[in-house]
Design a protein around this nucleic acid. Sequence first.
DNA 1: AACTTGTTTGTAACGATTTCAAATTTGGAG
DNA 2: CTCCAAATTTGAAATCGTTACAAACAAGTT
Lengths: 137, 137
Amino acid sequence: MKNIIELLKENNIAPSMQRVKILEYLQNHKTHPTAYMIYQSLADEMPTLSKTTVYNTLKTFVEKGILVALTLFENEVRYEYNTEPHIHFKCTKCGKIYDLDKSFDYCTNDLIDGHKVLEHYVNLKGICKNCLVKAGA
Amino acid sequence: MKNIIELLKENNIAPSMQRVKILEYLQNHKTHPTAYMIYQSLADEMPTLSKTTVYNTLKTFVEKGILVALTLFENEVRYEYNTEPHIHFKCTKCGKIYDLDKSFDYCTNDLIDGHKVLEHYVNLKGICKNCLVKAGA
DNA sequence: AACTTGTTTGTAACGATTTCAAATTTGGAG
DNA sequence: CTCCAAATTTGAAATCGTTACAAACAAGTT
């Protein structure tokens, strides 16, 4: 668990209360939350927190490469702490999103059909381990 | 090019004027249009066409498996005629979306880490062939 | 203490989509 | 052919996620 204040300073972001709390939340909750989920979760602790601040802060973090913004399947942007590239799997039963540590081949060659590939997103959809067990019971 | 009216009947969808026109548009324009783009394009020809009808119709088609709804990168749903699974590549310069005929490996085994995979979406982002040439000039 | 700069806030606006009820079209049954 | 019920379409209003903006606030300098 990296020191958040250090991390912000390294990226030339002033470590304000709200910025630290938001980044801390993402570090502790690897659930790919939306901006609104983050806002909701922090609202108790910080009653004056504004939704705009959450959006602004997330945007800043993405620009600096601290977070990754994902448009997985629906019409919502979700955020996760920047880690190694990986695959996302969404369960259509329970809605949970899993991180899968499979690597993919597009990494190896960065030219496909003459197009230069800079980013790649692999999203899978199906029924997760847990829901399969429940269905079998 | 499949007969659209037959296709609709096969799927128990009454082949109304607007439904035929919308599906015809998707057949003829493999540009991954949004609902609004489709609406715009058909508005000249059908002045009383409602946006709601376009949305309803697209939803019906997706439910029946005639179309595929894509959330590629931004916060917009795009539609394409249901074809073989393929990869989408979006150029960050010109914004164009390309279909790539690369197959992917997740097809082969439908269980990953115990999760049953039913759908897979692979989205690449980068600079397309044409924009690379322009940049080099 | 006044100034400057950066940050946060809340309200209003926005664009994509959905809801809803009324209007229209359609395809039978008489 | 005419009438009716069911399906379809329409347009206006509502909703949801997000952004724009301007005022309020905080922190550090001179």
